[in-house]
Design a protein around this nucleic acid. Sequence first.
DNA 1: AATGAATGAGCATTCATTCAT
DNA 2: CATGAATGAATGCTCATTCAT
Lengths: 191, 191, 191, 191
Amino acid sequence: MTAEYSEKREAILKATLNLLVERGFHDTPTSLIAKEAGVATGTLFHHFKNKEELINALYLETKRKMIEVLKKDVHLAGNIEEKIKHVWKSAVQWGIMHPKEYQFFQQFANSPFISKLTRDEALNQFEFINDIIEEALNSDRIKNIYPEFFMDYFEGLFTMAMNHFRKHPEKISEENMDMMFDVYWNGIAAD
Amino acid sequence: MTAEYSEKREAILKATLNLLVERGFHDTPTSLIAKEAGVATGTLFHHFKNKEELINALYLETKRKMIEVLKKDVHLAGNIEEKIKHVWKSAVQWGIMHPKEYQFFQQFANSPFISKLTRDEALNQFEFINDIIEEALNSDRIKNIYPEFFMDYFEGLFTMAMNHFRKHPEKISEENMDMMFDVYWNGIAAD
Amino acid sequence: MTAEYSEKREAILKATLNLLVERGFHDTPTSLIAKEAGVATGTLFHHFKNKEELINALYLETKRKMIEVLKKDVHLAGNIEEKIKHVWKSAVQWGIMHPKEYQFFQQFANSPFISKLTRDEALNQFEFINDIIEEALNSDRIKNIYPEFFMDYFEGLFTMAMNHFRKHPEKISEENMDMMFDVYWNGIAAD
Amino acid sequence: MTAEYSEKREAILKATLNLLVERGFHDTPTSLIAKEAGVATGTLFHHFKNKEELINALYLETKRKMIEVLKKDVHLAGNIEEKIKHVWKSAVQWGIMHPKEYQFFQQFANSPFISKLTRDEALNQFEFINDIIEEALNSDRIKNIYPEFFMDYFEGLFTMAMNHFRKHPEKISEENMDMMFDVYWNGIAAD
DNA sequence: AATGAATGAGCATTCATTCAT
DNA sequence: CATGAATGAATGCTCATTCAT
């Protein structure tokens, strides 16, 4: 199912995102999605084989868009700390600007609906981060920790920041973001 | 619906936990839970008003047991760092020893099924942590950060550790736990 | 799914038979069957796993009842010709007395809905006919024809008679039945 | 909807026949027929008003072709027995050579899809057989049986032969066909 | 004539829950 | 307390058919 452009298809994806985060998976019938998208029930299944595939498509296309943002301008950063900070802040800012998309990722992060295939393809797009990680580990700026942890630590602190800002929106500020990145960096910085 | 002890009741809770993490919520009909628990369908509704209440009961009782463990022996720890480390490591160890329970918490962390009531009651039991946090913030051992972040940071790094060990079980070791706590502590330690 | 007795189950089977022959398979929704049987839609699926199994059950139980009739009093017949005639006439009379059941068999004789399992089990019950066939072939009353054909010939002429009487009900008479059996017998009688 | 020749039309009819006998009516959506025929879904409805008319057209055109074969060379036969034998064997041979077409007839023989109109028109083409029957009944070669039965008997024994050969393809032989015709003839031959 | 995206009524089936026993 | 047959609203999905291009 290639993602050829189609207005109806787009409308369905948008309605799915909105309803899923507002009402949860099992309170979002396909009939309601279709209604919200302004199409017939059959049209939904014309574009997506079934509900599961619809959600996987939404997951993948949303992730693609997010990663597009994270990648942007990384190369402009100077040293490795700045590179990581750039990606980290881009991620947090993206999450703040796209709360629904972020919540959707949270909801389906551990869901059996997101197939291994989808997960793998999403992971592939994160490859550019591997380069950064390698560069970081090879530098003398950070502690001697193993790569798998480095990756999960990055994601973990990002998730933490996002959850925090969701619970306490009044804390959203450039300053606090910088503070959190400091916490992140101090955690692994070489002495 | 008080939690008086009953063998059937226990069997239902146990079956619920197993099925929920194995098959996900919407692939776990109450009929299957009853079957797995070795009771009649009606019996389930005799002990729990409905499916939602069953899950909330499971959530609450499991959380209670977990917190029991975290609280244990905290008072024996010396300074504030040791106290926090004790709770943190107890939490990680509990998660490793109870993978199903941990996965269940993850699955339902953001679920609309867990009522505000349940969430609040669970939170209440975390109160003993507030004391620790206050003690920490008042000490000169850690940076000047605001309390809400401190709390979320603790939970965030715990979750990160758990996810990491779930993805990479071969990395589970006392040593790595200590390493992660160091990362945690360095992130917020006063200079 | 053993055929334990149940009034609702019986009502469903009866409604199925009536509707199937009146309206055909694909114009007989399960909802209509349930309505006609005076039960809820769920009840139908409580007794039969799905529509297909419902039809297979109807097929098998109807066939069982029919064969019961064919078997009756065969042993009273004298020679082999009389035995065969007895079965043949019992079959034709059963078909005339049970037009719906007969039509149902015709409709589903070649249907992919009737599973091989059902067909085989139905066939098993015809075993008593094998004895008769063997006796016939070993006698000197009939021509030297091979057994498989003998069996199909019997069924073929029965079907022919049934079709004929269905098209021309005014021809139904003891006399014509006898005439047809003569035709049958002459076809294979030894010179 | 006249049957003007058209490649797409032919392709649709062919695909219909193949799919119908392979998968049964209710597992053969028009979309699949179109796909198999290599045309767009709309095209099917351009050539046939609806699914029912498509099947009726297939029925009628197939029957026409079959009867063409049965008629061929009847006039060359000598006496009435030979004439009947000629038609009977032609029919059996046609069935063996065109198993899909035969199965299709069997499947739809009692179907509500084949309209009375279609059935009547198909019957009309059988008229040449009436002449043969009349000739037979007026001759002294066969028993005194009434015409309606004579007709159904012919068809019944043909069907029986076809079913037998379908179940036991290894029995297909000129010899067995002759044997079966003998059985047929003996059944009604005058003493 | 041909296309195929769009339609929406219709269907088989599921499942939380009830209640008579 | 326990049972399990019965319920019926709700849902995912199918498919014949239409129609703008």
